[in-house]
């Protein structure tokens, strides 16, 4: 075996991360919360993936534009429409499936934005310190006290209906301060650790210290926060849609709820009201449980026991 092969660093990096992941995963999956969370998420994932099937079977199953030509009002479940139809004869089941896709899309992309922003800003503030830190953290404070929902409502009132990506962007811009606070304090404590000082003594640049030494040590925490942020993004989107400020071009669960309400079917059509309501609750719950279980994996006290 020659040297080059033995020190294929990328391969050993992969195996290191794989080992870490497997170790974490074994703790994670032993946790009943983690198990339930993952189970539910798989279910929702399947729903989102399955959302392409009904429109492909028959155009009348298109969640937004497909209308059953024989039905013009909301009717209960039948063989043709498993969950029934809405006020103009659209299939509720295919709407529900499409809603899962939207929920994932909104939740994950908004959370991703939040966490990328929060991590970058938190690391910068923590590492740079002094004025930069003060400025960024005051900005974070200001944004943190602004009620996101109210702000979005005002924007919607000013500019009319908001595109779904605009909503994602706004959620991202408004929810990073919490993440950045946590990442900043983590960075502050990392900055004091001798291995960072060792890198400085070795002549490492600021960028190198941030990306090579600090970031790998805060990323697990960012990841944890991402799961919690998914939850909040999904609820915000649902609330907006329900209040009538959602993207009119998409079918989200919040949107479905709004249609129930607006067409006066609130108490007449439980087959229409309950599925999206339950789905919103369950998907937020599952991300929350995921986060809690991950919390346990990352908990330093738990790690200590493993070291012993």
């Amino acid at each position: 075996m020659d040297n080059g092969e033995r020190f294929d660093t990328s391969r050993m990096k992969r195996s290191h991360w794989a080992a870490h992941f497997l170790e974490g995963w074994s703790v994670f999956i032993q946790n009943p919360l983690g198990k339930a969370g993952v189970g539910l998420l798989i279910l929702f994932g399947l729903m989102a993936a399955a959302s392409v099937i009904p429109p492909w079977i028959d155009p009348m199953y298109r969640p937004m534009t497909g209308v059953d030509p024989e039905i013009v009002r909301s009717v209960g479940p039948s063989l043709k429409h498993w969950l029934g139809t809405d006020f103009m004869g659209r299939d509720l089941f295919s709407q529900l499936l499409a809603g899962a896709r939207i929920a994932f899309m909104v939740g994950v992309s908004a959370a991703f934005m939040t966490v990328v922003l929060g991590t970058a800003i938190g690391m910068t503030a923590g590492y740079m310190g002094r004025t930069v830190d003060t400025l960024l953290m005051r900005l974070a404070d200001i944004i943190m006290v602004m009620p996101t929902l109210l702000f979005v409502l005002m924007l919607a009132a000013l500019f009319g209906q908001l595109n779904i990506w605009t909503i994602v962007l706004i959620i991202g811009l408004f929810r990073w301060p919490g993440v950045s606070r946590v990442i900043r304090s983590q960075t502050l404590s990392l900055k004091q650790r001798p291995f960072i000082e060792a890198a400085r003594v070795a002549g490492a640049s600021h960028l190198r210290i941030i990306f090579r030494h600090i970031m790998p040590n805060v990323l697990p925490l960012s990841f944890l926060y991402m799961t919690f942020r998914v939850t909040s993004a999904i609820t915000i989107e649902a609330a907006l849609a329900f209040l009538g400020f959602g993207d009119p071009g998409t079918v989200s669960w919040g949107m479905m709820l709004q249609w129930v309400w607006k067409t006066g079917h609130m108490f007449k059509a439980p087959y229409w009201l309950l599925p999206p309501g339950i789905c919103i609750s369950l998907i937020t719950l599952s991300f929350y449980m995921l986060g809690r279980a991950m919390d346990e994996v990352l908990d330093p006290r738990l790690r200590k026991e493993e070291d012993a």
Partner: peptide, 28 residues
């Protein structure tokens, strides 16, 4: 000018392999 720190449990980045830790100064 280099330094050897007091606490070896704190002076190595836990996320870097031994090779990566030792090679870093050369790379820099």
């Amino acid at each position: 000018v280099q330094m050897i720190f007091q606490d070896p449990y704190q002076s190595l980045n836990p996320q870097l392999s031994i090779y990566e830790s030792v090679v870093e100064p050369i790379t820099i």
